[in-house]
């Protein structure tokens, strides 16, 4: 979707002709600066979605609220998976800084697998809720819940694609410029998706409406 296009467009790392770290006024990398700006911007996107959910979370029929549907143990497990994927991502970044391609690829792949596992968990959770009677249009609560977590899920999926693409490009040695920086940027995006989930997990799941 439109949103996806932005991520990947912003995340291009190969405009190096003008991005050589040594030539910039601040000595900082253009790409990394762009990524942080993008993440700053994303704060307002998720802030809006979280606020919408917070406003509407209590607006549902008598027994159609969070308490009837949440499966805390399951969601905790998938939160744990996503949290651990942040660790494996960091390990990929440190491996990339050591110029250790083998371990970079290994940890990137593990991160992608954990991310996919999280998305799979979300799909399972959504289908379960749907079967139990929580459709997208059932209530304001359900619409805002699915919208918020759906946007997050799309972000995770985009991240998985980015991870796998990075693995592929490292394997084929097709990354122009600084390999470690590419991995680091993918990592920043990935951690951002994780911190958004840290907020969602507490605000949406753990705190009762």
């Amino acid at each position: 979707m439109a949103d996806t296009a932005v991520h990947d467009a912003v995340d291009e790392h190969d405009d190096h002709g003008h991005g050589d770290v040594h030539h910039t006024s601040t000595g900082l990398s253009n790409n990394k600066l762009a990524m942080w700006l993008f993440l700053g911007s994303e704060c307002l996107l998720f802030g809006g979605l979280i606020s919408t959910y917070m406003l509407y979370r209590g607006r549902h029929s008598a027994n159609g609220g969070p308490d009837q549907f949440w499966d805390i143990p399951f969601t905790s497990a998938s939160s744990f998976v996503l949290l651990m994927s942040s660790l494996t991502m960091v390990l990929a970044v440190t491996a990339a800084k050591r110029k250790d391609d083998r371990n970079t690829n290994l940890w990137l792949t593990v991160t992608a697998i954990l991310g996919s596992l999280f998305v799979a968990g979300q799909v399972y959770e959504f289908t379960t809720f749907y079967r139990e009677g929580l459709g997208y249009t059932t209530s304001l609560f359900s619409s805002s819940f699915y919208t918020l977590t759906g946007f997050h899920g799309v972000h995770v999926s985009v991240g998985v694609i980015m991870l796998l693409a990075t693995v592929g490009m490292i394997l084929k040695n097709r990354i122009p410029g600084d390999k470690a920086e590419v991995v680091e940027l993918v990592g920043l995006y990935w951690h951002f998706v994780d911190i958004v989930w840290i907020l969602i997990f507490t605000l949406v799941y753990l705190i009762p409406a």
């Binding site: 601040t26 900082l28 942080w36 700053g40 704060c43 307002l44 998720f46 802030g47």
Partner: peptide, 13 residues
């Protein structure tokens, strides 16, 4: 500078 960019967005949000 990176912190500034991120916290600016976070703080505004």
């Amino acid at each position: 500078l990176f912190s500034l960019m991120f916290y600016l967005g976070l703080g505004l949000a």
